[in-house]
Deep mutational scan, measured.
Amino acid sequence: TELRLDINGREIKVDGADKETLKELLKLAEKNNDEKAIRIIRHLLER
């Protein structure tokens, strides 16, 4: 399955993203107070 998050109005594919990319996405999600995106990205970073 493909995991996509809508961050800042942009749909971004997050599964398969490297750790650096995920960290950047996490910063974006935190800036937007997007709890769902934050939770998902943190979960991916823990893998």
Rank of each mutant, 00 (worst) to 15 (best):
1 T>F: 14
1 T>Y: 13
1 T>M: 09
1 T>Q: 08
1 T>L: 10
1 T>N: 14
1 T>S: 11
1 T>G: 14
1 T>I: 07
2 E>M: 11
2 E>N: 07
2 E>H: 09
2 E>Q: 09
2 E>A: 05
2 E>C: 15
2 E>D: 13
2 E>T: 06
2 E>K: 05
3 L>R: 05
3 L>V: 15
3 L>N: 10
3 L>W: 04
3 L>Q: 11
3 L>A: 07
3 L>E: 13
3 L>P: 09
4 R>G: 11
4 R>N: 11
4 R>L: 15
4 R>A: 13
4 R>H: 14
4 R>T: 15
4 R>Y: 13
4 R>D: 12
4 R>Q: 14
4 R>K: 11
4 R>S: 13
4 R>F: 14
4 R>C: 10
4 R>W: 15
5 L>W: 02
5 L>R: 01
5 L>S: 03
5 L>Y: 02
5 L>T: 04
5 L>M: 05
5 L>N: 03
5 L>I: 13
5 L>P: 06
6 D>P: 03
6 D>N: 15
6 D>C: 15
6 D>T: 15
6 D>G: 04
6 D>I: 15
6 D>F: 15
6 D>S: 15
6 D>K: 14
6 D>E: 15
6 D>V: 15
6 D>Y: 15
6 D>A: 12
6 D>Q: 15
7 I>N: 02
7 I>L: 09
7 I>K: 01
7 I>C: 06
7 I>V: 06
7 I>A: 02
7 I>H: 03
7 I>R: 01
7 I>Y: 05
8 N>E: 05
8 N>D: 10
8 N>V: 03
8 N>M: 09
8 N>A: 11
8 N>H: 02
8 N>K: 02
8 N>L: 06
8 N>G: 14
8 N>Q: 04
8 N>R: 02
9 G>P: 01
9 G>M: 02
9 G>T: 01
9 G>K: 01
9 G>R: 01
9 G>I: 02
9 G>Y: 03
9 G>W: 04
9 G>D: 04
9 G>H: 02
9 G>N: 04
10 R>T: 14
10 R>P: 05
10 R>Q: 15
10 R>V: 15
11 E>R: 05
11 E>N: 06
11 E>F: 09
11 E>P: 06
11 E>G: 03
11 E>Y: 08
11 E>A: 04
11 E>L: 11
11 E>T: 11
12 I>E: 05
12 I>K: 01
12 I>N: 02
12 I>W: 15
12 I>F: 15
12 I>T: 04
12 I>S: 02
12 I>G: 01
12 I>V: 12
13 K>E: 10
13 K>D: 11
13 K>M: 13
13 K>I: 14
13 K>W: 15
13 K>H: 11
13 K>L: 14
13 K>G: 05
13 K>Y: 15
13 K>V: 14
14 V>H: 02
14 V>Y: 02
14 V>K: 01
14 V>T: 03
15 D>G: 06
15 D>S: 07
15 D>Q: 06
15 D>I: 07
15 D>W: 09
15 D>K: 05
15 D>Y: 08
15 D>A: 06
16 G>K: 13
16 G>F: 12
16 G>A: 15
16 G>C: 05
16 G>V: 15
16 G>S: 13
16 G>M: 14
16 G>H: 10
17 A>G: 12
17 A>R: 11
17 A>H: 08
17 A>K: 10
17 A>V: 06
17 A>C: 05
17 A>F: 08
17 A>W: 08
17 A>Q: 09
17 A>M: 08
17 A>L: 11
18 D>W: 02
18 D>F: 04
18 D>M: 04
18 D>K: 04
18 D>H: 03
18 D>Y: 03
18 D>T: 06
18 D>R: 03
18 D>C: 04
18 D>G: 04
19 K>N: 07
19 K>C: 04
19 K>Q: 11
19 K>H: 09
19 K>M: 11
19 K>I: 12
20 E>F: 10
20 E>T: 08
20 E>R: 09
20 E>P: 05
20 E>C: 06
20 E>G: 08
20 E>Q: 09
21 T>M: 12
21 T>A: 13
21 T>I: 09
21 T>R: 11
21 T>D: 03
21 T>W: 06
21 T>E: 07
21 T>V: 07
21 T>H: 08
22 L>S: 00
22 L>I: 04
22 L>A: 00
22 L>G: 00
22 L>P: 00
22 L>V: 02
22 L>D: 00
22 L>H: 00
22 L>Y: 01
22 L>Q: 00
23 K>S: 09
23 K>R: 13
23 K>W: 13
23 K>N: 07
23 K>Q: 10
23 K>Y: 14
23 K>L: 11
23 K>V: 07
23 K>E: 07
24 E>P: 01
24 E>D: 08
24 E>V: 13
24 E>H: 12
24 E>K: 13
24 E>M: 15
24 E>W: 15
24 E>T: 13
25 L>R: 00
25 L>T: 02
25 L>V: 05
25 L>D: 00
25 L>H: 02
25 L>W: 09
25 L>I: 06
25 L>F: 06
25 L>N: 00
25 L>P: 00
25 L>G: 01
25 L>E: 01
25 L>C: 03
25 L>M: 06
25 L>S: 01
26 L>W: 05
26 L>T: 00
26 L>C: 02
26 L>E: 01
26 L>Y: 08
26 L>R: 01
26 L>S: 01
26 L>D: 00
26 L>V: 02
26 L>M: 08
26 L>N: 00
27 K>Q: 09
27 K>R: 11
27 K>A: 10
27 K>N: 07
27 K>I: 10
27 K>G: 06
27 K>S: 07
27 K>L: 11
27 K>F: 12
27 K>H: 12
28 L>N: 03
28 L>Y: 11
28 L>H: 06
28 L>R: 04
28 L>W: 13
28 L>T: 04
28 L>C: 03
29 A>I: 02
29 A>G: 01
29 A>Y: 04
29 A>P: 00
29 A>F: 06
29 A>D: 00
29 A>S: 04
29 A>W: 02
29 A>M: 04
30 E>C: 08
30 E>K: 13
30 E>Q: 12
30 E>P: 00
30 E>R: 14
30 E>L: 14
30 E>H: 11
30 E>A: 10
30 E>Y: 13
30 E>G: 05
30 E>V: 13
31 K>I: 10
31 K>F: 12
31 K>L: 12
31 K>M: 12
31 K>Q: 09
31 K>A: 12
31 K>G: 07
31 K>Y: 10
31 K>T: 08
31 K>H: 09
32 N>K: 05
32 N>A: 14
32 N>H: 15
32 N>P: 01
32 N>D: 09
32 N>F: 15
32 N>Q: 10
32 N>I: 11
32 N>W: 15
32 N>T: 13
33 N>Y: 07
33 N>T: 05
33 N>G: 11
33 N>W: 08
33 N>M: 09
33 N>H: 09
33 N>C: 07
34 D>G: 01
34 D>C: 04
34 D>Y: 05
34 D>E: 08
34 D>P: 00
34 D>N: 06
34 D>K: 01
34 D>T: 02
35 E>F: 13
35 E>P: 07
35 E>D: 09
35 E>R: 09
35 E>T: 12
35 E>I: 12
35 E>L: 11
35 E>N: 08
36 K>C: 05
36 K>N: 12
36 K>H: 12
36 K>Y: 12
36 K>G: 08
36 K>M: 11
36 K>I: 10
36 K>P: 10
36 K>Q: 09
36 K>W: 10
36 K>L: 11
37 A>M: 04
37 A>F: 04
37 A>T: 05
37 A>E: 01
37 A>C: 03
37 A>R: 01
37 A>Y: 03
37 A>H: 03
37 A>S: 06
37 A>G: 03
37 A>W: 03
37 A>D: 01
37 A>Q: 02
37 A>V: 05
38 I>C: 03
38 I>Q: 07
38 I>D: 01
38 I>V: 10
38 I>G: 04
38 I>F: 07
38 I>W: 09
38 I>P: 00
38 I>H: 03
38 I>K: 04
38 I>S: 07
38 I>T: 07
39 R>E: 08
39 R>S: 09
39 R>Y: 14
39 R>M: 14
39 R>H: 08
39 R>V: 09
39 R>W: 14
39 R>P: 03
39 R>D: 06
39 R>L: 13
39 R>C: 07
40 I>L: 11
40 I>K: 04
40 I>D: 02
40 I>M: 10
40 I>Y: 11
40 I>R: 04
40 I>S: 04
40 I>T: 08
40 I>P: 00
41 I>N: 00
41 I>M: 03
41 I>D: 00
41 I>S: 00
41 I>C: 02
41 I>R: 00
41 I>T: 00
41 I>E: 00
41 I>V: 04
42 R>V: 08
42 R>K: 10
42 R>A: 05
42 R>F: 08
42 R>C: 03
42 R>H: 05
42 R>I: 07
42 R>P: 00
43 H>Q: 11
43 H>N: 08
43 H>L: 15
43 H>F: 15
43 H>D: 10
43 H>I: 13
43 H>T: 12
43 H>Y: 15
43 H>S: 10
43 H>P: 04
43 H>M: 15
44 L>S: 03
44 L>M: 09
44 L>I: 09
44 L>A: 10
44 L>D: 00
44 L>W: 15
44 L>G: 01
44 L>T: 05
44 L>K: 02
44 L>H: 08
44 L>Q: 05
44 L>Y: 14
45 L>A: 01
45 L>I: 06
45 L>R: 01
45 L>H: 00
45 L>D: 00
45 L>M: 05
45 L>N: 00
45 L>G: 00
45 L>T: 01
45 L>V: 02
46 E>N: 14
46 E>W: 15
46 E>L: 15
46 E>Y: 15
46 E>Q: 13
46 E>V: 12
46 E>A: 14
46 E>S: 14
46 E>T: 14
46 E>I: 13
46 E>F: 15
47 R>M: 13
47 R>F: 13
47 R>A: 11
47 R>I: 12
